[in-house]
């Protein structure tokens, strides 16, 4: 642990007086973000992109409730498989209520983590990777178990067979992530 310096104590006092300050990015982080923005053509981070999508409002609300705004708005790079509002509407009401409750928050985090893949996977990367690996590939998630993605008869799907969540449209690109809409929630594992 670093020892608090006088400057830190002054900063804490300032926070107390004026409320929480927004953390500044370091020079290195700013440079990396600027380069990402130039490469992708947008300044939006992946949380903002999610929040701006009219058919992903439930996912955005749950991400916020889970306390992942800073995570998805930070320097880390993530690819989201985001269930649409219609997909969440198909959840049993008691399950949806649980996910929205304080008591169900660890479950919500577990669910969301399984929909977040590490790194920046553009559509061209997916297609190239699936072509190279015979139509199916494994993607590392933040949830402890990889998800499988494959090419089905009607497009890309998560899981096995033809009944899993389908990728429904072109992805949304942001400076630190990519969002793929899916039409179902990725089911939890069996023990």
């Amino acid at each position: 642990m670093r020892t608090a310096t006088l400057a830190t104590l002054v900063a804490i006092s300032a926070m107390t007086l004026f409320g929480c300050k927004k953390p500044e990015q370091t020079r290195e982080q700013k440079e990396a973000a600027a380069k990402a923005e130039a490469a992708v053509g947008t300044r939006q981070d992946v949380y903002k992109a999610l929040d701006d999508s009219s058919d992903l409002s439930v996912m955005a609300k749950l991400v916020k409730s889970a306390g992942l705004e800073k995570t998805l708005g930070g320097v880390g790079s993530y690819t989201l498989f985001a269930p649409t509002d219609a997909a969440f509407a198909r959840l049993p009401q008691d399950q949806r209520q649980l996910l929205e409750s304080k008591d169900g928050r660890p479950q919500l985090l577990a669910l969301l983590r399984q929909h977040i893949v590490t790194g920046y996977i553009a559509q061209a990367d997916l297609e190239k990777g699936l072509a190279r690996s015979g139509g199916a590939a494994s993607l590392a998630t933040m949830g402890g178990a990889p998800i499988r993605i494959h090419k089905g008869q009607n497009g890309m799907l998560v899981g096995q067979g033809e009944t899993g969540p389908h990728v429904t449209s072109e992805p949304i690109l942001s400076r630190n992530g990519v969002i793929y809409r899916i039409d179902q929630i990725i089911p939890p594992p069996t023990k």
Partner: peptide
């Protein structure tokens, strides 16, 4: 501030499961 996969990487070890596809950030 970050979620982590927790995947184990070390020099000389095999690529962990879940990295079939190129995923390097744009910058």
């Amino acid at each position: 501030v970050a979620l982590l996969t927790g995947d184990r990487w070390s020099l000389g070890s095999r690529l962990p499961d879940g990295y079939d596809i190129y995923n390097v950030p744009p910058e």
